[in-house]
Amino acid sequence: MASSTHDKTPAYYVPESSRLPIAMAFTLFLLAWGGAGVLQNVSGIQQNSSGVWILSVGLVMFAATLTVWFTKAAREHMAGLNSEQLQESYRQCMKWFIVSEAMFFAAFFGGLFYVRAFELPWMAGEGAKAATGMLYEGFEYTWPLLTNPVPEAVPGPQEAMHWTIPLINTTLLITSSVTLTFAHHALRKEHRASLKNWLLATIVLAVVFLGFQAYEYYEAYAHLGLTLDSGIYGSTFFILTGFHGVHVIMGTIILIALYFRVLKGHFTGPDHFGFEAGAWYWHFVDVIWILLFFVVYIF
């Protein structure tokens, strides 16, 4: 237990020293170095045989370091080391992290907006920079863009992605946000059984979402000709849905970790920051999807 501080303000826990940061920094080095090597290799830029090994070690270390770090942080909290002020630091940290994630997506949304509102109309000879159209004779702007400005160089997709599966996925994600909120309420009222069930339901919905997303990608590649290299429509489609999907995977891992912590009896009604942070993250991923659903599939 925290050694006695007779002051009114509880002492702020400053860990004496830690090997976790250097382990994580080195891990990121391996991920970057190995990842670059693998990318060089698979894209045929340059032969690189060591990349895959470095990346693999990096991935294992990443999972291990992250697990140890979060376990340690949770243990410290349960040992009573975290004053109210330190918990507030964690909460604010998580909020700003989500802001930064939102800005990461903003770059992709912004790119899609720029291309559709300005660049493609100009290339098709409309708008303030209509003269651009002289370079791309016969090019017409439609969205989804199936015929690219220079189709000989970059052939477009045969078909656009239909919105039915995404609509199902939207329903799934919104429902999952609702079930997670139910779980949260159950936790606040200390209804452990109901907490477990709602949390499990959320995880199931997340996994089904990922299943549909995988099926959609299969469809895109196998039947629609909608690929990463099929022009700007495919590029923006895959970068937005892809990074969203990566976030769903991370969110699902977080939810599963929370589930196991719940099974272990962690979290109490008034004290459950880990759960709360996971929930914020999940709702954030949900909001991004709704935005994405409209701009990628509908309009």
Binding site: L39, Q40, V42, S43, I45, M103, F104, F105, A106, A107, F108, G111, V115, E119, L120, M123, L145, N148, P149, V150, A153, V154, L228, D229, S230, G231, I232, Y233, G234, S235, T236, F238, I239, F243
Partner: peptide, 23 residues
Amino acid sequence: GLITMMLLDITAQTSFFNAAGGG
């Protein structure tokens, strides 16, 4: 986000910064 688009343009032939593909 920007350097990620670059990375994809380089390694996966996306068209973010390639006018021929509409970028």
